[in-house]
Nucleic acid binder design. Structure first.
Length: 510
RNA sequence: GGCGCGUUGGUCAAUCGGCUAAGACGCCUCCCUUUCACGGAGGAAUGACGGGUUCGACUCCCGUACGCGCUACCA
């Protein structure tokens, strides 16, 4: 391999939310670039004007920022190879398309969409349900192969809408070496004369990707496996344009599959199965429909990225938790799996849990702040951090801090009475009445001290601790959950503890 | 239909000819905890099938099956 500086690119089309598979493609690009001290470019492939969705481009950038995978070069970061939006490069593509026509590698085609549809209809047979516009079909259609040159000239002069199609050879073997799959080969007989330049003057993906990868000096191109079948078209273009020596090395990434059933994971599957598929919340500007994202679901970006890295790649060591630096150090394309991976939300949750466990309480508190704010609860950040530290063991998501620690912020309004009442009696009633009075004078309100005096009083009253702890817990939290009781009491403080006991006694004693 | 790619437990997966086939998630049991978790100890569960090659095949080759992808003036 030459010593060319590594340059990779992520080239999304701004048509909507960013799918988790897209983020993984970004990740692999990013890791590869960093590993080789290369450059990560972001190019916007907005050549389909009919599918353009306003806001999608900004959204994609924001997703990358959130994940910590921002590009070095691109629409926002700038660079020497711009513009980075294909719609702004329109003139460039036409020039190459015409060049290909002039060299006999492409041709004009005047068929209207209706004519194409009719062709597909007419030539469709049970054996061949998708007839192709290829060497054989060319002569049945209206193009610069089948039409006399004068007619082509006059059609062109009259401004007749037309496309430019590649001249695919009748039968030629094409081979390339995929970084993941090894040698892959095709025969052009199965490849049709793909449109290169559309009637509106915009290039199709095929032309644009080759021209831009060349002009932006991309050295390695990673894309989803669904692109594999169009590789021969691209190889042909690299050859025809005379750039073959500069063709990037390709890697076709395995697909991310539905957890159940078959096929690629889609946004619909997330809705159906109750987990996010997009990186962040996405609001469709047309319908206003919101699709939930990993970020809003409570995922830490580091966990999300780590989880994605392991979906199709591993370093062989068995290690699963990696810092970004470790990922950069260890990543290599040849350890990427060939087969598609089913997405497992439980595993994703586990990753997030691991990261929550390893996140400082202050940071968790900060991340949790919006939840409290939404509930109009005002709390001291240090207090929130303490709570986070007490409950994070049982949290899969930042948002879970509420579910597992709400009682640190608000007194219970109802109780798990079924767990207390059947065994409630006067002795217990009296114990807690006495305990509550003692608490007013309890000098040391730490958990250990509280437990000690609680125990002492229980002994004195001759009641077993076990009989008392659960009711006490329910008084403070409303149910059978949470950190050790005395820790809860110490955390919420004297005033709250006393008030909650008093209130609960009214309910339990009734 | 054609072309391409793939196939190790329910899921993610290690293995680059020596396997009594790692590890993780999930699941189950037990321990710890007079709450819920965390943690700890165990457990069930895997090479699609058929042929080769080889002393030896999960690993290499060939078929078959199955799955997926593509087959647009979408990317």
């Amino acid at each position: 391999m030459e010593h060319k500086k590594v340059r990779v690119r992520f080239a999304p089309s701004p048509t909507g939310g960013l799918h988790l598979g897209g983020v993984r493609t970004v990740l692999f690009n990013y890791l590869f670039a960093r590993h080789h001290n290369g450059t990560f470019v972001l190019r916007i492939e907005d050549t389909d004007q009919t599918r353009y969705v306003p806001g999608a481009e900004e959204y994609i950038l924001e997703c990358l920022r959130w994940c910590g995978l921002s590009p070095d070069e691109g629409t926002e970061a700038g660079g020497e190879y711009g513009p980075y939006r294909q719609s702004e490069r329109k003139a460039i593509y036409r020039q190459y398309a015409e060049q290909l026509v002039a060299q006999g590698h492409a041709y004009y085609a005047f068929d209207t969409p209706e004519e194409l549809e009719r062709m597909r209809e007419n030539f469709k047979t049970p054996e061949n349900p998708s007839p192709q516009y290829n060497v054989k079909m060319r002569h049945h259609m209206r193009n610069s192969h089948s039409l006399p040159p004068e007619e082509v000239r006059s059609l062109l002069a009259a401004g007749t809408p037309h496309v430019i199609r590649i001249n695919t050879p009748a039968s030629e073997d094409l081979t390339f070496t995929d970084m993941i799959r090894g040698e892959v080969s095709f025969n052009t007989s199965a490849v049709d004369d793909k449109v290169l330049l559309k009637a509106d003057g915009m290039p199709t993906y095929h032309l644009a990707v080759v021209v831009d990868d060349y002009r932006m000096q991309i050295t390695h191109a990673f894309r989803g496996e669904e692109w594999l079948p169009s590789a021969p078209v691209h190889i042909l273009l690299w050859k025809y344009l005379g750039w073959e020596p500069h063709m990037p090395q390709w890697a076709h990434l395995p697909l991310i599959l539905k957890p159940d059933g078959n096929g690629k994971l889609s946004k619909r599957d997330g809705d159906r199965l109750g987990f996010p598929v997009y990186a962040m919340n996405w609001t469709d500007p047309k319908t206003g429909e919101i699709t939930r994202g990993f970020r809003e679901r409570g995922f830490l970006p580091e966990a999300f990225v780590n989880m994605l890295a392991l979906l199709g790649w591993n370093d062989g060591s068995g290690q699963e938790i990696f810092s970004m630096k470790e990922l950069i150090d260890r990543f290599s394309m040849d350890r990427v799996h060939k087969g598609g991976a089913r997405f497992d939300f439980d595993k994703a949750k586990w990753f997030n849990h691991e990261y929550i466990l390893n996140t400082g309480n202050d940071k968790l508190a900060a991340l949790f702040a919006p939840v409290l704010e939404e509930k109009a609860i005002v709390a001291d950040p240090a207090y929130v951090a303490t709570v986070a530290g007490l409950v994070k063991d049982r949290c899969y998501f930042v948002n879970d801090i509420w579910e597992h620690g709400f009682f640190f912020f608000e007194a219970p309004t109802q109780y798990d009475e079924a767990a207390v009442k059947p065994k409630w009696n006067d002795a217990k009633q009296q114990f807690f009445e006495a305990w509550n009075i003692m608490l007013a004078d309890q000098s040391d309100f730490h958990a250990e001290a509280l437990e000690e005096s609680f125990k002492a009083l229980a002994n004195e009253k001759n009641i077993k601790m076990g009989e008392l702890q659960l009711p006490f817990r329910i008084m403070l939290t409303s149910g059978k959950f949470g950190p050790p009781v005395f820790v809860i009491a110490a955390t919420i403080g004297r005033e709250q503890t006393i008030a909650r006991i008093a209130k609960a006694l009214e309910v339990f004693g009734a």
